[in-house]
Every structure is written in C-alpha cells, then in structure tokens.
Design a protein around this nucleic acid. Structure first.
Lengths: 336, 336
DNA sequence: CACATGTCTGTGAACGTTCACAGAGTGAGA
DNA sequence: TCTCACTCTGTGAACGTTCACAGACATGTG
C-alpha cells in the first residue's frame, strides 16, 4: 500500500519469464527472430509485472524521443482567439497519438519564451516541430534549420529563402471562388477586408480577390484588418466612408466578418439586401452571427492531418517533402 | 555543414573548462560549493560549446521528467468547442514554462486512447497530471490514484469518494449573483437552462439559481442543455412552450445563451424587452451575439494558474492541498 | 559429411546524466 | 600545533534501455 512502489524494469520481466533482457527488448521492439515460446512467456511476464517501457532510457540510446513539439509563435492572445487553432490542435494530437508520439505544446511569444523553446529543441527533446503561424523573419526558423530539427508548418510560411514544408488550404483559389460567387449574384461593387498581409491568409486571399476582379477595379475597395472582430468592424466603417456605394464585401475571416456585420448594422445597411457579406473559415462564429455567414470552409482537419503526415515522413528520413494544398468549399448561408 | 552534428555532452563542457564533469553537473543544478573561478570557466565553456542538458539522461537518474500531462477526458469535439478551454491551455502552458516544465497534451476519448494515456502515465513519463472535464466515474482517476501520480483537476470533479484537488470558479455564487441581478431588474418569471447535471458547471449553477428563487418557485422553469449552441436553442424553445410567460432566463453558458437568443428571436420575443437573457462564462461569443450578452465572467486565467500551482505543490511533495475557489464577476451588456 | 545459411539467444558496452563518497585545501579556535 | 568545520573537487556507480557481437542450434545443400 505504498504510494510509490518501484516500477518494474526490463530485468524484472526477463527474470519473471526466465529469459534474458536482450530477448525481452527484442519482443518490445517487434524484432523477428524471437521464438513463439519466448514471445509468449515474455508477454505473460509483461502482463504480470505491469511492465511499461521507460522512454527516457530508450531515448538515451536511440536518440529518438517519441514526441514532437507544437510551437506557437504568434503573440498568443490572437491565436487562441482563433477557432481554427483548436481544430488543428485536436487533430494533430490525435493523429500523433495514433502513431504513439506525444505532443508537447510550446508558446514562443516574447524573447524569453523563444530562448526556452530553442534550448528545448536544440536539446533534442523533440523529434520534430509543428510550426503554427510563424512569420518569415522569425529567428526560430534559422535556428531550427541549423539544429537540423525536422520542421513542418501548418500554413504557408511567406517569403523565406529556404522554404519550410507545409500543408494548407488553398486560400487563393478559395478567395477566387467567393469573389466569383458574389459577382455571380449580381454584385457590382465588391470590396474586401484582408487579414494582415504578412500572413498567408491575408496575402493569398487578397490575391485571389484581385485575380477575379482585376487590379484596376479593386483599387479603392481594399481595407485591411487584423483578424480580430474589432479590426473587421473598423475596416468596414472605413470602407463605407470611402466608397459608400459598395454592395458586397469579401471578408478575409469569419471573425472579422462578424465585426463587419456590426459596422453595417450601425450604418443602417441591410445584409444581404444592401450589402452581401462573404466570410472565410466556416468557423463557429459563422453560424452565430445574424444573419449567418456565407463563407469558405477550410478543410482544417485534413490540413492538420497532412501537416502531421509530412512531419512524420521527415522524421522517418524523407529528405524532402512537397507542400500540400487542399481545396476549400463554398458554404452558402444567409449573408450573401 | 553537416545536418546532424553531434550534440556536446557534459564531458565536452568539462574538457573545455578543464574541470571534472561532477563540478559541471553542480553548476548546472545550482549547487552551492562551487568556486567562482570554476563556475565562470564552466559557464564560458557552456556558451562556447552550445551545450544543453540531455533531459532523458537526467530523468533516468532523477526519476523526474520535467513535464506534466494535460489530459482531456471529454469526448473531444465538445470540449474544443469550448472557448474557455483555450484560455486554460494557454495559461497553463505559460505558467508551466516559467517553471521550465513542459506540457504534453493527451486526449483520452475512447477506450484505446485511455489505455494509451494510462500506459504513458504509469510509465512515469509525466510528473503530474492536469485533468480537464473529467467525470467522477472515470476509471482513469482510480488508475491514477493507484499509480501514485499527482493529479489536479481544473474544475471540481463531482461525487468522488476520495476527492481530487481542484481549482475552479465559484459557480454557485456566480449563479446566485446573476439570478439576483435578474430579479433586481424586476423580472418575475425567471427560468434557467442548465448544462449537463453531471458537470460542476451544470449542477452548481443550478443550485445557485435555486438558492435564490427557492425550489417551489422554480419547479417548472428549469430546462437542460448540453453546453452546445443547438442545445440552448432547443431548451429555450421547450421552455417557451411549457411556460410562455417567462420574462427572464439564466443560461448556464454563453454558447447555449447564443442558441437561446436564436430561439427567442424565432418565437418573436424581443431581448431584453420581453425576455432578459443572462449567460455565464464571458467568453468571446458573449460579444458577438445580438444583443451582446450580460454574463458572469469567470477568472479563467486565475483558475488555470491556481490549478498549475496546486499541481506543482503536489509534485514538490506537498502531501495535501486544499481546493481553490475563485469569485466570478457580473458583466452587464445589453441582453439583460 | 562438410559447410553455409537462417533462426534464436545471451552478454558487454554504450547512451549522458546525477548522486554519494572520499579526499584535499583553508581558516578558525583551542 | 592539532582538530574541526567548511568549502571545493574528482571518481565510480548507478539509472533502464538498445545495439552489436558472438555463439548455439537447426536445417538445407553440395
């Protein structure tokens, strides 16, 4: 009835089975060349003793840890506000767990955080890194490269000389689809509210928008937000003041679209009668706004799955992996 | 320019500093009894070699891992939909990082997951466990107890014989405050929509509600939801049908309140003129509904901080810690 | 029968730390 | 001067694995 009774080791199992620890190690690691008798005896002994392998000892010799780090390098508040992130986190955790690798969560916000993360990674405490919303200039990326730690980003990392492998939704094509949809509904003066242009979602969705309408036509119809609700509200107000005649707006995220809706209501415009509003993400807020948002669904789970797959491939020795870009889907509700 | 150059060990540092590894270990672990000369030499050598301690080797001898597991035992979708959870996760990660312990995220959804989690924990791969939304009957809890792994819950774990230490918001008193507020605004027929009664938030908030209004008065004014938006909508509709005359409703979560708002709108009731709506959580949805929700703010960051503190105390050898209950705060917006 | 090949097993030596111990040097107090 | 306490240092032995090696035995092949 002691609180901490000593954990059985591989030696205990070997003794209980009457077999050497070498053979025990072999069945643990699924080696061929183990007699069925030995295997049975060992499996019984494992069950009896309640043995579970000590990963530290194993890591010490194999130089593999069986864990990967998920590193958030956004100032945290912004990111955790993002509903997409939860999906990503959940899916990644599950996918990794299936392969028996565990996920350690790290936040690299300010300088001190960064150092800690780097120390951790350079210490070889993770076999690989899942990068979330990392900016191109982030010194973490270079350090990672130097340290030779496999890394994959969830979402494109813009403007890097030596590109980081990634999986992402097809933001550009998604934006095109939405813009075409709005145009197809007869809207003639279509504006857009972008996310920050140093993020892939901000940049690529704007590109898609311009692809469809042309650079000239959109000159005065672009406003910038910061992925927050409030930012969307401000940008919408600005747009209405600058160009009162707009009859549609493609907003670069659902959360900003919720803000835009508020600004439109405040300005006395009806949605979708006066102004049609299209969002992006198909996150939970899309159905909680009034009216519910027409938006682009991102295959977030698949993005997470693919990100994990790429990372595991890299860890397993693939020298190079190609980025994965997944299609988005238009979800029509009431706002457009 | 090789991809993986060998990581320096404590021996390399010792050699570079011209001092034995024992002394290097001592400065690493902040031992007194190290001459300033030696310390300086070693610190220089550490910087030069880029040495970082191998935690596995350390864990192997110390039997401490420097990490704790955060275990989610809710069917995951529900939980990740919960905006509170993000706050918790972020705060816990940061707080732990400050103490240089890392957080590994585990999802114990179905049976297979559970086994994996238990194996991990019994393997001694985490120094402690942070439990999130764990139910009383969960076999994980017994297993944890048997294995002697320190565990602290974020939020009360209901109905357990040997209670799990926890930190939580004062749900019951918060519910009382909200109910009193609604009554104080002249509302006479106040209903409630609860969360599941096997969760502390569901049960305690209902208790607080009944505390204020009395068991008799509330008999027909209670409906149950499941913490989802949809659940809130259904419960509200049910309530309206059962007792059309209600003029206020206290909803056990903001998300359900958003659903209730939709049901009220569908039934043609104005909020707050006809029916006042009070939520709970003060999560992000509270400001994105129309009208914005009057709600109870939970000090979630403090809850997370305290949970972490309790766990670290336990890990550091505190034999027993007392639960921590933190006050909530009324946030008045437009819905009531 | 000799020999190669394939299967199975045990053993010693790592992996990179910490910890306990022993010993050396220094200064103070008797 | 001797002793004691304190400070500082080095060394050997763990911690629990995996891995390479060597050897035993069986089976098949020429």
């Amino acid at each position: 009835m002691r609180v901490t009774r000593k954990r059985p080791t591989i030696h205990d199992v070997a003794a209980a089975a009457g077999i050497s620890r070498g053979t025990v190690s072999r069945v643990l690691n699924g080696d061929r060349y183990v007699s069925t008798a030995a295997r049975a005896a060992i499996e019984r002994a494992i069950a009896e003793t309640g043995y579970v392998v000590n990963r530290n000892a194993r890591s010490l010799v194999t130089q593999r840890t069986g864990s990967v780090a998920l590193v958030l390098s956004e100032p945290q508040e912004k990111l955790f506000e993002d509903p997409n992130f939860s999906v990503l986190l959940r899916t990644a955790t599950q996918r990794l767990a299936q392969r028996d690798v565990s996920l350690v969560l790290m936040i690299a916000g300010d300088g001190g955080d960064r150092d800690r993360v780097m120390r951790y990674l350079r210490g070889g405490h993770a076999d690989g890194v899942l990068l979330v919303s990392t900016h191109a200039g982030d010194p973490l990326l270079d350090a990672l490269e130097v340290a030779g730690v496999p890394a994959v980003a969830c979402g494109e990392v813009l403007g890097r000389r030596s590109p980081i492998p990634y999986a992402a939704a097809d933001d550009r094509e998604g934006a095109r689809q939405m813009t075409r949809y709005l145009a197809g509904r007869g809207r003639r003066r279509i504006a857009t509210i972008t996310g920050p242009l140093d993020t892939p979602g901000g940049l690529r969705r704007l590109e898609g928008f311009v692809d469809v309408l042309g650079r000239r036509a959109t000159k005065k119809l672009i406003a910038h937000g910061d992925y927050t609700r409030r930012g969307g509200e401000v940008a919408m107000a600005e747009l209405l003041e600058r160009t009162p005649g707009i009859d549609a707006v493609f907003v670069g995220s659902d959360l900003m679209a919720a803000g835009a809706l508020a600004a439109l209501r405040a300005a006395g415009r009806r949605v979708p009668e006066d102004v049609a509003v299209g969002g992006f993400d198909d996150s939970a807020v899309a159905v909680s706004t009034h009216p519910p948002l027409t938006t682009m669904r991102q295959p977030l789970e698949r993005v997470a799955e693919e990100t994990v797959r790429l990372l595991l491939d890299l860890i397993d020795g693939a020298g190079h992996v190609d980025p994965v870009v997944l299609p988005t889907e238009l979800v029509v509700r009431e706002s457009a």
